[in-house]
């Protein structure tokens, strides 16, 4: 079995008196889509923010490529090659696709601060091509004029532009129609096929069952179970999400009740 590229061990996180994450173990494997599921308030976003360096962790350990790392700042994560696509995308509508993809990391000519727009356009196009994105007619299109799916595509492409190895996607299909969801899921699959470690947060079981290789269910801040997609089914995952246990797997009844 391959080694995880990014892992968390016994992660704890409280906001004041609220203990949000309890001894969470979480692994991301290269070339796999790991779905992170759980009810509202289970702690999914909190966990992601711990990896992003937005939330500090109270105890526990994060390792990247086998080495312990500390993430204090969003830039720490970026420097390691961990990228995040947040649900509210954060694209600048008044800029075009290329400008958004390179925002904050523009290519300049030499050591000056003059932009190399041609070079950026080429790389943007190459990245989109490598993701088999065919729906944009020009990388000079303003983001304001894109559809929801295209915007999501740009946000994801931005995340993989800089040789990132792990990509977190927080509900990438939440606001999309059928066809656009299809595009984004294909894109998510392709990221994993290219060797990225992909973490997909979603409330949509169809999406999860379709695209994930591994499913981690969070229940009230604890990992209820980590299962392979091949060994499970929708009913079981839904039970894990809503009750923390399903048949033989999941939290022991006592733990599940105690956390209530």
């Amino acid at each position: 079995m391959t080694e995880p590229i990014l892992s968390a061990r016994r992660l704890n996180k409280s906001f004041g008196p609220v203990h949000v994450l309890h001894d969470v173990d979480f692994d991301v494997y290269p070339g796999e889509v790991t779905a992170l599921v759980g009810d509202n308030g289970a702690g999914k976003s909190t966990l992601v923010k711990c990896f992003a360096g937005i939330n500090s962790i109270d105890s526990g350990e994060i390792t990247y490529e086998g080495k312990a790392v500390t993430l204090h700042d969003p830039r720490d994560a970026t420097a390691l090659g961990i990228e995040f696509v947040y649900q509210d995308l954060a694209l600048a509508d008044n800029l075009d696709i290329t400008q958004n993809m390179f925002l904050g990391r523009e290519i300049t000519s030499g050591r000056s601060s003059f932009l190399s727009d041609g070079e950026m356009e080429r790389q943007a196009r190459d990245t989109l091509t490598s993701l088999s994105v065919r729906t944009v007619s020009s990388v000079r299109q303003l983001v304001a004029n894109l559809s929801g799916g295209q915007r999501q595509t740009v946000a994801i492409a931005k995340a993989v532009l800089f040789n990132s190895k792990v990509v977190f996607l927080d509900e990438p299909t939440a606001a999309l129609g059928v066809a656009q969801t299809r595009q984004v899921l294909d894109l998510v699959r392709r990221l994993a096929d290219q060797g990225h470690g992909v973490v997909l947060i979603s409330h949509n079981m169809n999406d999860v069952m379709e695209v994930a290789d591994r499913i981690v269910a969070l229940y009230l801040g604890r990992v209820a179970a980590e299962v392979m997609k091949a060994d499970t089914n929708t009913t079981q995952v839904v039970e894990l999400i809503t009750a923390g246990r399903s048949g033989g797997i999941g939290l022991a009844a006592a733990t599940a009740d105690e956390t209530m």
């Binding site: 969003p74 830039r75 970026t78 509210d88 954060a90 694209l91 600048a92 008044n94 800029l95 904050g104």
Partner: peptide, 10 residues
Amino acid sequence: GNAEAARRAG
């Protein structure tokens, strides 16, 4: 255009 996007982009 989007101060939050700019901030997140570093």
